[in-house]
Nucleic acid binder design. Structure first.
Length: 921
RNA sequence: GCGAGUGUGACUGAGAGGCCAAAAGUGACCGACUCAAGAUCGGUUCUCGCAGGAGUUCGCAGGUUCGAAUCCUGCCACUCGCACCA
């Protein structure tokens, strides 16, 4: 196996380097990998499935380009290198033991570039061993200086097109690292969302007491504030006014765009029973409550007992002690199915005893969502729906009552990988790609409508993504990458530098030879857009490159896993739309499913991976390929199971043996040879159609299993001990080519052995010859097959060893009946209609039975067979007579064939067209 | 929670109103060849049946239809995405 693979790899070394040619092109690309670890079988499928498609179109005579590069921009490897430098055991274990990085190399992993270089080389090596037909001349990485020039050009274009703007933005932020943190940087709290609270500013003496709320509209129902008497609050100077907040809140505010200066401490209990004021609810007292969390937003909350179960129960608890008897809930929202005080109703209905009841959260949620979805403010507060009021009141407060917002996580803790606590910070000077721009969106939407999407179900998801996309923060402070041309303190964010690189591939191998400084924006304008600037350097060479770009672009299909729909795959459409003219816009996308390993999700961090290299070693490249594209269609999730993979290998061996066998086939014709050829045409046709639709699994069903099962019948039908005839000989060459895209190593060798010309990778794809399809012949074999099945099923039931079998073929008048039934417009009246015929009627009850049986039979037969039977005028007696040797061999009994009309056997009357009566003795 | 999708026999997975007890592959069982095999070949694999038949099945519960795995409604379970991240 090794030898076979190595031999093929040697032949392929430069074979797939594709240059523009006179024939039609097919350009496919796959999302390039981020090489921060070893490839597992899931990655394998991502590249193998497109390779099968690439190989298929190459054999169809297209000039195929399948390029590959490596995405190395971004922060992850920096984190990895730091962890390795720090001696982090988990990281070292992963890289040393799971990914098997040699000790000496691992030592150098403290340099992030070493990591990506190492794994990029590994990727290329393993991809090559998979037999991927990649043009490696075009390989690049996203930190190559030439690529950076390309990115600079792209961004200049976006900038000038008005797609990039500056703004402020709340992000998760780690003060220790002094950096925003993404999901993968979090130790804890990756599900936490940033919520936007409105701070309702109550006046107390010379200070504001901000109470943060998600429901500003409930301010009309505030009866008091809650302050935690055990907490020490602080009086702070915020942007020039004095506020009283928790100490935690002061820290948060300072990260959120406020100048904060502490003036003094204020013990919580000193605030109790103070009277505070807000214009929208008047004077209210401050009450004590230990449930108030100083680490939640401002650390002080307003109380709306009519509508917030927590507030209601806390107030009730206090009142039970005989305090604050004069405070009554103030209702402001009317909700169907609830009374004047929804919080009270809910608490009482649930039988809540005190504020420590664990059901309080669910109850709160219930009241909140009921009010939000169907609540209305009372007329005196404006009568708006809660949904509307929340917005109006929020705006009113910020505009007229000194409110501002504070961002806070909806769940905690949120902890950075460095161990430090994560806060919400407002980032300034952040650059955004304006994906929210309606004009840009509709441009993308319009193009999407013209694209080919596989499978079609993903279209809805793309449409929704376009609709939902907001502005994307497109610059970073740390990581590898290209600097923003007009603001070099910023790096371009890694998803944003990977949106139109498919165009770069088309000329990547030429660009390598350029001095990066010569790759000016004007150069790229010329190369990609054809815009000429006088005085361009290397003019002739650029002309050639421009031609090459025009030859390949736009790409035909882009392949990627489905998790990239909501970002990369949609982003790239935006960027194409912003930069390229209509004729360079992408044509299609194929979205893949995810991979499972023995039924469980594959995940490097959990160690649940099967390295692609190990799979290749253990099973061989062809087996891995055939399993990965044959076990499920590309867009379905697949499950790597060793036992199934193992049997795939046996199937390839079986195929090998059959091809060897075809070499011994004789040139003679046996009865079934034309049948095999006829069937073969249809399998070719169907396999071709399947691959055109990217259905690799379906294609294999036709090109492998269906052919195998025909061969089984073919062998059965051959005279005893005979070798195959001309059909088998012919099959060899076709079959090798049909399977070449999937198992190219095996087929390359077999192609050579059967005397094929050149490489099978470039051999012409078999085409179906319609003239060799013989429906009548196929129908005859179908009749034999069904009859044998009938005989078998009878034998199974009656349990005797037969000495003779009589096949009684239906008399010709029944064929007429059959035809009348089959063509009858109305099956309900068909009996009456047919019985009008004198010839039929005189047969009496037998005729009536025959009609009924024909109705059932026709119902059960595939429509195609019935149709063909009507056309064929087949002589069933002759068919059975000709196959008598075969039948006798199959049934180990003497076989007689008679016309049921001339038989005296009682059973004979049951004979129907295409379903002879069978008598076993 | 929101959006998109999926649920078929022991498993993977076709089927998208009558060809359906439901393709193909795997596994399991039986037999053949063999010193032997995870090899190869043949057969069986929902239940019942001494004549090719009948019955019950396609996440659950209803409904439409002469007829539903397939169409409609509700429910349940799983997968992916929900952004600053590759």
């Amino acid at each position: 196996m090794r030898q076979l693979e190595e031999a093929a790899l040697k032949q392929w070394e430069h074979a797939f380097e594709a240059d523009p040619a006179a024939k039609e092109k097919f350009y496919l690309t796959v999302a390039y990998p981020y090489p921060s670890g070893a490839m597992h079988v899931g990655h394998g499928r991502t590249y193998i499935a497109p390779d099968v498609i690439a190989r298929f179109w190459r054999m169809r005579g297209r000039q195929v380009l399948y390029p590959m590069a490596f995405h190395v921009t971004g922060a992850p490897v920096i984190g990895i290198s730091k962890r390795i430098a720090r001696g982090d055991e988990k990281a070292i274990h992963l890289y040393r033991d799971l990914y098997r990085v040699p000790e000496e190399t691992l030592k150098e992993f403290t340099n992030p570039l070493t990591i990506v270089r190492h794994f990029a080389a590994e990727y290329q090596r393993v991809m090559t061993s998979c037999g991927l037909s990649i043009d490696w001349r075009r390989r690049f990485t996203t930190v190559d200086p030439q690529y950076s020039k390309f990115i600079e050009w792209q961004w200049k274009h976006l900038w000038e097109g008005g797609h990039v703007k500056k703004g402020a933005h709340p992000v998760r932020f780690c003060p220790q690292c002094d950096n925003p943190v993404g999901d993968h940087d979090l130790l804890e709290g990756d599900k936490a969302e940033i919520l936007k609270f409105v701070m309702v500013m109550f006046r107390w003496r010379d200070s504001f007491i901000p109470t943060a709320t998600l429901r500003p509209e409930t301010v009309y129902g505030v009866t008091n504030l809650w302050v935690n008497p055990t907490v020490t609050y602080v009086k702070v100077l915020v942007d020039g006014t004095t506020w009283i907040v928790s100490r935690e809140a002061a820290t948060k505010l300072s990260l959120q765009d406020h100048a904060v200066k502490e003036i003094e401490e204020i013990p919580g209990n000193s605030l109790i029973d103070q009277i505070v004021h807000h214009p929208l609810c008047g004077d209210v007292p401050v009450l004590p409550a230990t449930f108030v969390d100083p680490d939640m937003a401002s650390g002080i909350v307003m109380s709306v007992p009519a509508h917030a179960p927590f507030d209601y129960i806390a107030l009730r608890d206090l009142q039970a002690e005989g305090r604050y008897q004069d405070i009554k809930p103030v209702s402001l929202i009317k909700v169907p199915h609830y009374g004047e005080f929804p919080a009270k109703d809910a608490v009482e209905k649930a039988g809540i005893v005190d504020q420590n009841d664990p059901r309080m959260d669910a109850l709160t949620q219930e009241v909140y969502s009921a009010e939000f979805s169907s609540g209305k403010l009372l007329e005196k507060y404006g009568g708006e729906t809660v949904r509307q009021a929340r917005e109006t009141v929020g705006i009113l407060m910020t505009d007229s009552y000194n409110s501002s917002v504070i961002y806070e996580f909806d769940s905690r803790p949120v902890v950075c990988r460095c161990g430090g606590r994560v806060y919400v910070k407002i980032l300034h000077d952040q650059w955004f790609l304006q994906y929210s721009d309606p004009a840009w969106k509709s441009q993308v939407e319009a193009h999407l409508a013209e694209m080919s999407l596989v499978p079609p179900e993903v279209r809805a998801e793309f449409e929704r993504t376009i609709d939902w996309l907001k502005d994307w923060a497109c610059t970073r402070r740390v990581g590898l990458g290209t600097r923003l041309p007009w603001d070099p303190d910023w790096l371009i964010e890694p998803l944003s530098d990977s949106t139109i690189y498919m165009a770069y591939y088309t000329i990547a191998h030429h660009l390598k030879k350029f001095n990066p400084d010569d790759l000016t924006p004007e150069t790229f304008e010329f190369l990609f857009l054809g815009k000429d600037t006088p005085g361009l350097k290397n003019r002739e060479e650029l002309e050639v490159m421009r031609k090459e770009f025009e030859y390949w672009y736009p790409y035909d299909y882009r392949f990627s896993a489905k998790d990239l729909i909501s970002n990369h795959l949609t982003f790239q459409l935006f960027h194409h739309a912003a930069i390229f003219p209509k004729e360079s816009m992408p044509c299609g996308m194929v979205v893949f499913g995810m991979g499972l390993l023995e039924g469980a999700k594959m995940s490097s961090s959990k160690g649940n991976v099967f390295l692609l290299e190990d799979a290749l070693e253990e099973f061989g490249a062809d087996t891995v390929r055939m399993f990965l594209v044959g076990s499920a269609e590309p867009w379905q999730d697949f499950d790597w199971r060793n036992d199934l993979v193992y049997s795939t290998r046996k199937q390839i061996e079986r195929f090998w043996n059959t091809i060897e066998e075809t070499r011994n086939a004789e040139r003679r014709t046996s009865g079934v040879d034309p049948w095999l050829i006829s069937r073969l045409q249809q399998h070719i046709q169907k396999a071709t159609e399947a691959l055109e639709r990217f259905q690799t699994r379906q294609a294999l069903q036709e090109a492998f299993y269906a052919i195998e099962s025909d061969l089984k019948w073919y062998r059965k039908r051959l005279p005893d001990g005979a070798a195959g005839g001309f059909a088998l000989k012919e099959l060899g060459s076709i079959w090798v080519r049909l399977l070449a895209p999937v198992i190219p190593f095996t087929c390359e060798r077999l192609w050579c052995e059967i005397g094929g010309e050149g490489l099978v990778s470039f051999a012409p794809w078999p085409s179906a010859d319609r003239s060799r399809i013989d429906p009548n012949l196929e129908l005859a074999e179908e009749l034999l097959l069904r009859t044998i099945e009938d005989i078998e099923s009878i034998r199974k039931v009656i349990q005797i060893t037969p000495s003779s079998i009589t096949i009684c073929v239906a008399p010709s008048w029944k064929k007429d009946v059959f035809a009348s039934v089959a063509t009858a417009p109305d099956r309900n009246t068909v009996i009456r209609e047919i019985m009008k015929d004198e010839q039929v009627r005189r047969r009496g009850k037998a005729a009536q039975d025959a009609i009924k049986q024909c109705i059932t039979l026709i119902h059960r037969l595939p429509p195609g067979i019935v149709e063909q039977y009507l056309k064929a005028e087949m002589n069933e007696i002759e068919i059975f007579d000709n196959a008598r040797d075969f039948l006798e061999r199959e049934c180990s009994a003497k076989v007689h064939v008679v016309d049921a009309g001339e038989s005296t056997l009682a059973k004979a009357s049951a004979a129907l067209p295409f379903k002879p009566a069978i008598v076993i003795e």
